[in-house]
Simulated assay, not measured.
Amino acid sequence: MTTNDIVTIGSNCIIKNGDRFFLLAEIEAKVPGVEIDPIVITRITEEQAEKLLAGGLHLCRIQNQPPVAPPGFEVEFKCIFQDNCRAFQIFDVENGTDEAVLVRISLEKACQEVANGARRCTVISRPFV
């Protein structure tokens, strides 16, 4: 096993929240007995988002209900993302490939879930320019 096999990128997409853009990436680190896979969200500029989308990255799916796992798929709740008075639950849907799905929730529900132990997503709030 090489280090290239240990740390990889899982689900990844661009979040568009109003006029703000973010790059979402799941960092997966796996060795026998250890599996670490946090979601990291980085604020990006509109120009960066346009170029990443043109390069093949896609917009994150945003919906109103949690995803349901079809046969052979797994759905895992990852974290709560809050930005600009909006809140989302983020789920990872897996079946050989990863897809991040954002679910709209109220700010009140987001605060309640965090108070009950849900993770907040790691967010880098200043774009790299």
Rank of each mutant, 00 (worst) to 15 (best):
C13W: 03
V7A: 06
V93P: 02
P127I: 09
A115W: 02
Q63T: 05
E26D: 08
C121K: 06
C85N: 13
V40Q: 13
V40F: 07
V34A: 15
I105L: 10
E76A: 13
S125L: 09
P71K: 12
N95Y: 07
M1N: 13
A87Y: 02
K51G: 04
A49V: 03
N116V: 05
A29G: 05
N116E: 15
L102M: 15
D19F: 06
D92H: 04
F91H: 13
I27W: 09
G33F: 03
V129T: 14
V101R: 00
F22M: 12
R20P: 00
T2N: 15
Q82R: 15
N12A: 06
A49N: 01
N84S: 14
G117R: 05
N64V: 07
S11G: 15
N4L: 15
L23H: 02
E74P: 05
I62P: 01
F21Q: 00
S11Y: 05
G72H: 04
A87F: 05
T97W: 07
S11I: 05
R86W: 08
I9C: 07
E26W: 02
L24R: 01
I36M: 10
H58D: 08
D37W: 10
L24C: 10
N64H: 10
C85I: 07
C111D: 09
Q82N: 13
V114L: 09
A54F: 07
Q89S: 14
R86H: 13
Q48V: 00
L24K: 01
E26V: 13
C60E: 01
N4C: 10
G72D: 07
G18C: 02
L57M: 12
P67V: 04
L53P: 00
A100I: 06
E108H: 10
K78S: 09
Q89P: 06
N84C: 03
V103M: 12
N84V: 08
E47S: 14
T97P: 00
